[in-house]
Computed example of a mutant assay.
Amino acid sequence: MGNLAQERAARALRRHAPELAGARIRELGRGLDHVVLVAGDLVLRVADRPGVVREARLLEIVAPRVPLPVPRPRFADAAAGVLAYRLLPGRPLLGRAAAPGTAARLGRFLRALHAVDVAAVAGLVPVEDADPGEWLADLDGPPELLRVVHASVPKPSGRRVLAHADLGAEHLLDDGGGVTGVIDWSDAAVTDPALDFARLYRDFGPGFLAEALRVYGGLDDDALPRITFFARCAALEDLAYGQASGRTGYAEAALRSITWLFPR
């Protein structure tokens, strides 16, 4: 998708930001279904074509309601599949320690995000059951860890909130002093709030999770088994992805998380 993504980004720049039409476009990162480029001070996220318009509208709703920065759309070009926003400071926390106070800040962030009226985002994000049993499909990993996951499937929750739903370290920007942005909202959904704590638990450990939950408040008493289950599944997914793709940062982070997610 590399060259094609750059061509799509260049077309979008000519239409919406002609002052950057001749700027150098370089790759900043990529995911399973998108490429992130940068030109000047603009991030250009090249992804699913209709999806970028929905994501831009979602960000416009979320931005004024949460206490941490999220991308502020400059434009969304449905024809090219390009979402553009000003470059946020910092770099992803994947493989790095979080600054003191980060757990509390994310607890406040999630409390505000989950309070957004789901009617305000109707049609912009899917409504997902987050049935833990369905997470077992195609899950791969070391057999002894898979046995633990299969033996600890919790009951699904009936609570539904607007969730980021992929709130891992790779989507948290940090400048060394704290979180400077929450990025990649392409998986946002109206779903179980436990999903937004699962990857925080996976990436930063039990103490971090406890502090985020303390500040957040209000989760049901049986949320912790769901958080743990989703975190274990996410760790195995990242382990498999990192090993298959050669992106060792994901595999290394997943292996670290196994020490607290699957205690002997």
Rank of each mutant, 00 (worst) to 15 (best):
G2P: 12
R8Y: 05
A10F: 07
L13V: 00
E19M: 11
L20E: 09
A21K: 02
G22Q: 08
G22R: 10
G22D: 09
G22M: 08
A23C: 10
R26C: 13
L28P: 10
R30E: 15
R30S: 14
L32Y: 15
L42V: 02
L42D: 00
V43I: 09
L44Q: 00
R45E: 07
R45D: 03
V46L: 05
V46T: 05
R49K: 11
R49L: 07
P50A: 03
A56E: 00
E60S: 08
E60A: 08
A63N: 00
V66F: 00
P69K: 03
V70N: 00
R72K: 06
R74Q: 09
F75V: 04
A78W: 02
A78F: 02
L83Y: 02
Y85F: 06
P89N: 09
R91I: 04
R91L: 13
R96V: 11
R96Q: 11
A97R: 15
A98F: 03
A103T: 13
A104P: 12
G107V: 01
R108S: 12
L113H: 05
H114I: 03
L124G: 01
V127T: 14
E128R: 15
E128H: 12
D129H: 14
D131C: 11
G133Y: 05
A137C: 12
A137M: 13
D138A: 13
G141E: 03
P142H: 11
P143A: 13
P143S: 12
L145E: 10
R147V: 14
A151P: 08
V153M: 03
P154C: 07
S157K: 01
R159T: 04
A165T: 10
G168K: 03
G176Y: 14
G177A: 09
T180P: 08
V182Y: 04
V182A: 08
V182G: 04
I183M: 08
S186L: 15
D187G: 15
P193V: 01
A194N: 00
L195G: 11
L195F: 14
D196Y: 08
F197R: 04
A198W: 01
R199C: 06
R202E: 04
D203E: 06
D203H: 04
G205W: 01
A210L: 08
A210K: 07
G218Y: 03
D221I: 03
D222I: 06
L224T: 04
F230D: 05
R232D: 03
R232M: 06
C233H: 01
A235F: 05
L236H: 07
Y241F: 10
G249N: 00
G249P: 02
G249W: 00
E252T: 14
E252C: 07
A253E: 07
A254K: 01
T259E: 05
T259K: 04
W260M: 00
R264P: 12
R264Y: 12
